[in-house]
Design a protein around this nucleic acid. Sequence first.
DNA 1: TATGAATGAGTTTTCATTCAT
DNA 2: AATGAATGAAAACTCATTCAT
Lengths: 202, 202, 202, 202
Amino acid sequence: MRSIEYSQKDILIFNGVINLIKGGANPYLITVSEIAASAGVGKGTIYDYFESKEEVIKKAILFNFNNEIDYFYKKIATKKGFKEKYYEIFNSIVENLQNKFSTVNILMTLGKLPEFHISEKQDSCEFNKHILRIQAIIDDLLVSGYKEGIIKKIESQYYQNMVIKSSLFSFTNYMSMQMIYKETSVKEAMDAAYKIVIKSLN
Amino acid sequence: MRSIEYSQKDILIFNGVINLIKGGANPYLITVSEIAASAGVGKGTIYDYFESKEEVIKKAILFNFNNEIDYFYKKIATKKGFKEKYYEIFNSIVENLQNKFSTVNILMTLGKLPEFHISEKQDSCEFNKHILRIQAIIDDLLVSGYKEGIIKKIESQYYQNMVIKSSLFSFTNYMSMQMIYKETSVKEAMDAAYKIVIKSLN
Amino acid sequence: MRSIEYSQKDILIFNGVINLIKGGANPYLITVSEIAASAGVGKGTIYDYFESKEEVIKKAILFNFNNEIDYFYKKIATKKGFKEKYYEIFNSIVENLQNKFSTVNILMTLGKLPEFHISEKQDSCEFNKHILRIQAIIDDLLVSGYKEGIIKKIESQYYQNMVIKSSLFSFTNYMSMQMIYKETSVKEAMDAAYKIVIKSLN
Amino acid sequence: MRSIEYSQKDILIFNGVINLIKGGANPYLITVSEIAASAGVGKGTIYDYFESKEEVIKKAILFNFNNEIDYFYKKIATKKGFKEKYYEIFNSIVENLQNKFSTVNILMTLGKLPEFHISEKQDSCEFNKHILRIQAIIDDLLVSGYKEGIIKKIESQYYQNMVIKSSLFSFTNYMSMQMIYKETSVKEAMDAAYKIVIKSLN
DNA sequence: TATGAATGAGTTTTCATTCAT
DNA sequence: AATGAATGAAAACTCATTCAT
């Protein structure tokens, strides 16, 4: 379960990348100079800690995913009931919306994003860890649902999973495309997403 | 309703781009030389028809969206019943899956993809047209559902919309992440997605 | 004395070049497309009549020089007295000023301009012809001066020549740098240039 | 009075450009590769110090003008009498003749040369400084002439100015067109130019 | 004969990476 | 250990020239 341990300098550089991306930069178009400036280090320093630009950006994104999932997980764990947990996720999504490469995006595309050359074995492994952690969040949610009798019929594991993901997708889609859903309020979007779960799993 | 008219050479070049992307190339990393080679024209020719590399790629992607939506729309129109239409969409998704920038992706991310600098007015307008056409497909589907009494309760327009999108998302997600859903067959994934609609809209 | 004979199409193309230059274009930066457009012919046509872009521009400039010197010569010949001829030259310079590659410029730089690769023998020969024709104008002027007793002392041929050129230079310089000679009127500049001749050759 | 301060690398690159031009290259046809090779730096280095090829060449020419005028000014200042100063200018012109873009050329065309797109304000300002410095040289010369009583009659400022410029033009023209003045020696050309001043300003 | 679409050689420019300090 | 100046390979882009029509 232990993640790769990163040095303070590693993290400093990651934050440089993350801030660029959160500021709207396209990961594919970021330059080393930009990273160095954003991280407040020299360009050469980056090569003292990483092999290539690709590696820095890839690892920075994965590092950020990890952190955001942690944060997400903890926030949801503080809530007790199914509905409270669910709406806590909605709130996190709202909070997270600015970040183009945020956990929100993981949940939405569920793994489509880190296409940043997931070729090597190590990356693929890292990536799988993320999927498992997202799965854990969903499982936690489902367990709460069972306990409270909100999720009654015992559908297949796959179906239950997909209902949750789909429902969350619907809210994420609302948030990221708000401009085309002008007549719907955030509250209504949350309620609609929640209704999808309730009806589908009942 | 009429889209921008393109010359044969424009389309030849677009196909060069589209084939690269379908072959797995990242739109942000494609070079002009690659486009030229893929289209079977000289590098200079591309600049006789377009202002810049960015313009070619952006327009090629939008052109392809347009075509795929057309194809999608026509395929679905051939089917009569709600369920048949729905499963026709599933089939199209299966068919389409190779294309990273396919209609499937539009439907899934519903507009998140063409982030390829949709800043200028013209692009934004083009983009809106796509959203409207996707909406038309969804509306067509809903109408069939009403007629057949499959969609009974009159929920909000927004909710109905989101149910369809979420359900389609679930199948698209299955297809694009098949490696993590090894115990679930394509048929089961379709049925699960269909069940989400039926339960949510009933 | 007979100049190269040019076809109508040659001349059409030359005028394309000349118009571009008179419009402020830099001869070194003119493109074949621009010439074709300016001449109202196809790009290919230019290559039916000339070997290369360089050749077209070079010949066009020389052709224009020739024409302008002709015109110049004729205008001056219409005047009888030394002073009238001299002021006629001034008037021609004023008239000519817009044209960056005008006879004015020949007179001013006296041959420095057609540096447009005067390497081949033929060009060099063409170029010499121009110098001779300018010389003829100056000689004609000097003869008038002798006849009228304005040019008294018999200085060396070289000196007399240079006095005329220098004096004309002074006026040309005034015209082309008018912005730095704001307190001096055109009339005063002409008179000053004339005074230089009178005093130097007296 | 202080000019833009340039770094050592800037100057290294400028010298690359200047050497090419002094070697006969046409400023409009110089390539970045040539500049890099001539300056002994990598192509990329040029872009670390300048925005574009145009900027390098333009600034290099202005830089060179500045230096040559300095040199010119100092050389003339070492001489005391009017005639000695005047002949010192002639000597500088002889010395300078190789350089196509030398001070000689400034003096001759008096500002026509840096047509290298002097459009922006900063360039225009730089350029004005050059004109003022040339003017200072001429003024210095005129003062010497007054003191020695060589320049007697008090003609207009403009006239005196133009006499000097015209006279210098005559010698510069001799030097740059020596091939057409084969019967005249350098000494004779100097004497003729000097005679123009003496007679015109007396 | 006249054309302009097509080309690719040759430019300008960028930027990941290195390495002397 | 940290830097950023320097580099050149590789990219975008231009345009003289060709050639099928």
